[in-house]
Design a binder for these strands. Structure first.
Lengths: 336, 336
DNA sequence: CTGAAAGCGCTAACAT
DNA sequence: ATGTTAGCGCTTTCAG
């Protein structure tokens, strides 16, 4: 990469002072400079192929115009839409999103957090909230502006953009009750996540309200394997439920696998409801009944909350809850 | 965010010159400084919670330690694994990956390219290669170091990490021939992408070699909808093939939809082979026979090629081709 | 082994 | 409306 033109080169060619070039090229300050001069500066800049060096600008203005986004694993299909939503808000405002993965490890998260801080990010979006979230605590103590997305913080009063988990579970339960289901198992996501807790509590409350025989079964992680293992325990435990409300779609997929492995059919033997409506959930075998969470919009809202926090410099512990919608497909049917 | 400690603060506390702090804290130069001094500097740094400002360092060293990654759409399930592969190579080497989306628009790509250049990225990884790829041409002319991943460049001699597309198609054809299929349609991806072209040529050559009756049908994009539309044309066109080799899994999913919409069964009426083995391809209805492409490893190789280019400053127009593997599942069966 | 000094490219007071 | 000056935080010669 050959040496690139600087503001000094442009100034020389346009016959003005570097400071003037800076003012002429910045939309906020171009009002302070003669239109004719602006024209000359622009021409010189174009001729030299000048591109502002945002590193130098960032050093001077102490704002990098980049936002760190911390996700557990980009490969989990709910995160790409969230990230795209974040970018769709940030990009038009001149920010870039620096996305990093933690693989669910607090240790890794601390490392990537450090690297984001070194890069002088203007703010952080955590998709990794959980109880005892030490990185969020550290960020909070360092006065780093941040928000949570999808999951709420388990440890600090950062704003959050989340889906209406409780409503999603209530809708699932109502749907199952209407189909005649009575004995229902909830495969609860791992403890420590706000999503797991809210969904679990909504399940218990919902069963009580509808007079259903609900049982909560733990899972070790939000993964297909964990869902399969937990469901296999349910199956071998005797009394089969007629329906399963899974903590998310991955767990529901694990339920599919366990059912198939035990020559049980879905929905004929057991109905299954997922959560998230991850991409292609409608193409699974059987097409999955699940709760659609507006992940893209969650990303947009999180970015908006963060930008407001950055601009106003006040940490408003607001929570934005977006509505969810039960999508009924082929994995649920009448009890028989 | 309160004012953070700088190297000057550390120097003052440790009673040394800022230059010495810099040397003491940098692994490449710490050999030049007294161990006892290093200890004192480290203690002072820890006490102040000092974090190096990589923006300032980048300005001084004119290297940002960030790599731009340009993808069409993170929401397309083949890209997250590629991105993770890239990061897995870059992160341990101190680089960060700045991922941006183009949504397949050259205009958007030029914009994000500009923003990456302003951010002084040390190199670029394009997952967007195609014929007349103007952004790659621009990058090349600006002497920007870059590599291609998944698709080769249609316009400039940048190195590329790609899967063995031709081999994948040959394996698919051999599998279908063995099941007795004769009349086979290839749903070719849109022209202009190296993947489309290589797969299409391999299909034609493979059919000739195996004595199969192969027909190529165009698609407008690598999407489910485009696959469905093209397959519907095939179905309404009369003579139904006994098997379809789709340009990728999304197109194959579109074939599923078209078949279902016309009360045709897969694989009983038509066998279908996809390409990529995208996540959850085994959970579709029916479980998809497809060619597994090692996307994560493609990302690793691309990052490696780029780092070599950055370090040696020579653009070696190398191509790394990774092996692929046919994964046989339930969407292909004997002809009947 | 350490200090001194310069400067990466830019912006923002201040002065004119 | 434009020029002048200083300096963001760091690394890297050059001296000593």
């Amino acid at each position: 990469m050959s040496r690139r033109a600087t503001i000094a080169d442009v100034a020389r060619l346009a016959g003005v002072h570097p400071g003037t070039v800076s003012r002429a090229l910045n939309s906020r300050t171009e009002g302070q400079v003669n239109p004719e001069t602006i024209r000359r500066v622009r021409a010189a800049a174009r001729q030299l192929g000048y591109t502002p060096n945002s590193i130098a600008r960032g050093l001077r203005t102490s704002s990098s115009m980049t936002i760190g986004v911390i996700v557990p694993d980009l490969t989990n299909p709910i995160f790409p839409p969230i990230v795209r939503g974040i970018e769709s808000y940030l990009t038009p405002r001149g920010y870039s999103a620096l996305v990093v993965n933690t693989d669910g490890s607090d240790e890794t998260e601390r490392l990537v957090f450090q690297s984001l801080i070194q890069r002088q990010v203007d703010g952080l979006i955590f998709a990794t909230g959980h109880q005892g979230h030490s990185t969020a605590t550290e960020a909070f103590e360092l006065d780093v502006k941040a928000v949570m997305v999808n999951r709420e913080s388990g440890s600090v009063p950062y704003p959050a953009a989340v889906g209406d988990d409780a409503q999603g579970i209530r809708a699932s339960l109502a749907h199952l009750a209407q189909l005649g289901h009575q004995r229902i198992v909830h495969l609860a996501g791992p403890t420590g996540f706000s999503t797991s807790q809210v969904r679990r509590e909504a399940f218990v409350a919902g069963c009580a309200a509808l007079g259903l025989d609900g049982t909560v079964v733990e899972t070790a992680a939000y993964t297909v394997d964990a869902g399969q293992r937990s469901m296999e325990r349910v199956i071998s435990g005797g009394e089969l439920p007629t329906a399963v409300v899974a903590g998310n779609d991955l767990l529901a997929l694990g339920v599919y696998h366990a059912l198939r492995g035990n020559a049980l059919r879905c929905p004929e033997d057991v109905s299954v409801v997922g959560f998230n409506d991850m991409p292609f959930a409608g193409d699974f075998e059987p097409a999955m009944t699940t709760v659609r969470v507006p992940h893209f919009d969650l990303g947009v809202e999180a970015a908006r909350l963060l930008c407001e926090e950055i601009e106003t410099s006040v940490i408003t512990a607001i929570k934005v809850v977006l509505p969810v919608e039960l999508v009924i497909r082929a994995s649920t049917g009448p009890v028989r």
